[in-house]
Design a protein around this nucleic acid. Structure first.
Lengths: 215, 215
DNA sequence: CGACCTGTTGATTCTGCTCAATCAACGTGG
DNA sequence: CCACGTTGATTGAGCAGAATCAACAGGTCG
């Protein structure tokens, strides 16, 4: 099974600054491919050729264990680059969450690596370590608070957060069950820390309390 | 406070193949520094200049949260390279676990990056993702089993594993308490999967059962 | 020998998982 | 239009497992 609905849009010069200089000036691939919700971008075991950059929407990176469980190892949004592998095979799979636009950076990984390429790899490393700290939080409430604050920072909005993914995805990201995710949001609501504007839009009522909670 | 007992040894050409060619031929720093147990190599907040390679012994990378808890984000052994940062400041701290020999790779990160450098960074990324999957294991027994098997692979020994770090470190690595670590080892012992040759040497009696457990 | 540190074990508490029911939103087809 | 099925989200009850608090054993070092 492969991508069907993926279409190609004209290149809309990404606003997603990486460092200062555009690291892709020599590797531009003008086409952006749209992956509808839940469409696979690459799968576990696929050969790893290229790198990818999210242009809009959200991409999830996940890995499935032999017992069928799924661990989401990252949610990526505009400007994030993914597809790095130590070997020539993808250890994780990448899927669109909500209809994501992805640009393929061909030949970015061919030849001698550039400083920009290294920087992107290090950014991926930093993201992964960040999530590691998140999973280190013992309580479910703390993890959720940390997750919301992390999203808030990425979305550059101190007062509100949009959750493009569903509860199941959040659960597999935080190492919880989706029931617990639901309960946790309810706890934060009852504690007066957040308000659920819609099912996927969270408004912060007491940011300090959230920050204190995830410590 | 800085390293005191650190001494410099003659360079013993490392056997720790990274890829095939020696990536450090142009960046050799002949000196190896010995860090005694628990000695800091660098601290959270230190300026990040160089990269480091473990020559012998074990190094732990950790991060402390504002509430005082510690999350160990990696145990590194001979051949592993660490010190990568996305920014110019160390987000984590590195300490010797058991008396570790560390070589500084000066200027490895200056100028244009090499393919070998990128490869090392990607290896670090892969290690971090591996641990992320480990933390994704729900049960304490599963985490411990996965940890032991992971160590076994790194030590290239199918029958036995040496634990250079103490229970407290294992706990902070696995996101458990040290009491639970103790109990978990006891469980694996009672289940006939392992034998504790010494307090820090674990012998596998039923490797298959361990592998099945951590699924 | 005593002080201290690491590790083990026990008892209790509490958190999150499991199993289950319910509800709201949506789409389909009669 | 409404009956029906589906899917995602919420909520409840009971239980298993890990954290917490506490006691104790073994080793090392002064």
């Amino acid at each position: 099974m492969h991508i069907q609905t993926a279409f190609r849009a004209t290149n809309s010069s990404s606003q997603t600054g990486i460092g200062g200089s555009d690291p892709l000036s020599s590797t531009q691939s003008a086409a952006i491919t749209l992956f509808p919700a839940d469409a696979p971008i690459y799968a576990q075991g696929d050969e790893a050729h290229d790198l990818y950059m999210v242009e809009f929407g959200t991409v999830r990176i996940s890995r499935v264990t032999s017992d069928g469980r799924r661990q989401i190892t990252g949610f990526l949004t505009a400007g994030d680059v993914f597809g790095f592998e130590a070997d020539d095979e993808h250890e994780s799979c990448a899927e669109s969450v909500d209809g994501a636009g992805v640009r393929v950076l061909r030949s970015a990984c061919r030849g001698e690596p550039t400083a920009a390429l290294l920087k992107m790899a290090l950014k991926g490393l930093a993201r992964t370590q960040q999530q590691l700290m998140l999973l280190g939080c013992r309580s479910a409430n703390a993890r959720m608070a940390a997750f919301l604050l992390d999203l808030s920072e990425r979305q550059a909005n101190d007062h509100e957060v949009h959750l493009p993914m569903q509860r199941n995805d959040v659960a597999d990201y935080l190492g919880l069950t989706f029931e617990t995710v639901s309960r946790t949001l309810r706890f934060l609501k009852d504690a007066g820390m957040i308000r659920l504007k819609t099912i996927s839009d969270v408004q912060f009522l007491d940011r300090d309390a959230l920050e204190q909670l995830c410590e």
